[in-house]
Simulated assay, not measured.
Amino acid sequence: MQTRVCFIYPWATFGGVERVLLNRALAFKHYLPEIRVDFYFLHDSGGLAPLAAAMTQYELNANSSVSIMSSFDQDYDLAFIIDCPQAIDLCVRRSQRYVVECHTSYAENRGYLANLPSTCERLITPSSVFSDLIRNEFPALPAPVGELRNFVPWDLPSQGSSLDNCLPRWTKKPILFFGRLDHLKDPLSLLDAFQLLEHRRKGEFMLLFCGPTSPEIDLNKEISKRSLEGLSVVLPPVAFASAGRLLNSVAHAGGIFVSPSKGESFGLSAAEAISSLVPVVLSDIKAHVNLVSGYEQIFTYPLGDTKKLSARIESVFDDYANACDAVARARLTFSAASFIEDWKHLFNELDIA
């Protein structure tokens, strides 16, 4: 029996939510092919074309199993409203069953949760850590809080991210920052830590920055201010299907991934790195600690402490083989199979076949 669902998001961008949606569609294709998925975005902010291209590459739109919709005029077994309060009224007017998903790590963007109507059947988050945060911020929610855990589909058949088309080989060991270049993600802490590392290990490492830019930070100016131009490469945002190639290239060069982020709902980029067997160095916010649970002493450092960030980067490089073994174990907790377990549990709770 076919089940039809719709995921609604305000803007089609080039970010984490779209990667989450693609990952879910890949999991459905493998485990639950009877699910028919529609994506509906209120506005195109440049992300529809790359999303559609990725869907084609992954063969997700074969037999119309996954579609991007231009309007919200179908009947669904369940709609998932992802940080899009504007869509709640759409569902209420149509008597459409819906749940609300909160993925945003920006506190000011979560304020709408204080006004959720009683028609909302569940509030869904991407991790148990984020569920706890939401419960503390909004103790009077009208619906139970639960999880559809974020994941990386490393345990599914290969999605075409082989090394055949990887980036050029790096001349130094790369340190990758892969995320939005704003103050919350804090690439400046990595620049400061790298200055310290370069002083101790001159010419051994290089920086790679890849992600959407932000008016908050002029990254090239900050690189120049620290005299790191010859040791830093700023890449444009990569296509959805190319993220694996970038991470594989870093792994092949013996590199690492670094996230100095001040806030995450899950830490998808870090999870993608771990799933590609790239050792990581992460700020010790709760979402990061949860990703590397049991290996915090290897992979995390105190948030905002650039000296300890620099030292942790050095220690991971100096014990690289053990770090690779540790990420291979850490990735077991965020597989596609774990997401499917959560999905089935949610639909059982809501009594949807």
Rank of each mutant, 00 (worst) to 15 (best):
K202E: 13
E216D: 15
S232L: 02
F177A: 12
D192M: 06
D44V: 05
V100E: 01
S71M: 05
V278W: 00
S269M: 11
V278H: 00
S242T: 06
D342P: 06
R94M: 09
G47L: 09
E314A: 11
S242A: 12
L123S: 04
S338G: 08
T300F: 00
S232N: 01
A143Y: 04
F14M: 07
H103D: 08
L277Q: 12
L22F: 07
N136S: 13
L350E: 12
V327W: 03
F334S: 01
S269G: 07
Q74H: 11
D186E: 12
Y320M: 13
R97C: 06
D342N: 15
C6M: 13
V280K: 00
I82G: 04
N220A: 14
K29P: 03
A27Q: 04
T3M: 14
T3A: 06
H183T: 14
R135Y: 03
Q195I: 06
Q2V: 12
A52F: 00
I88L: 12
P10L: 08
V280T: 07
V37D: 03
E264C: 04
V20I: 15
L21E: 09
P85G: 08
L32K: 11
T119S: 15
Y295T: 01
Y320K: 10
A53V: 02
F266G: 04
L350D: 11
A49V: 14
G146P: 00
E204Q: 15
L116K: 01
G255D: 02
G203L: 06
L42A: 11
K172G: 04
S67Q: 15
N220Y: 07
L346T: 13
S338P: 00
F334C: 03
E18I: 01
G294Q: 08
Y98I: 00
G47C: 07
S227E: 11
F80R: 02
Y106S: 11
T171K: 13
E18L: 12
D73I: 07
D182S: 13
S128R: 14
M206Q: 15
G146A: 07
R135D: 07
D192V: 06
G15Q: 10
I217E: 11
F339T: 03
E272S: 05
R93A: 11
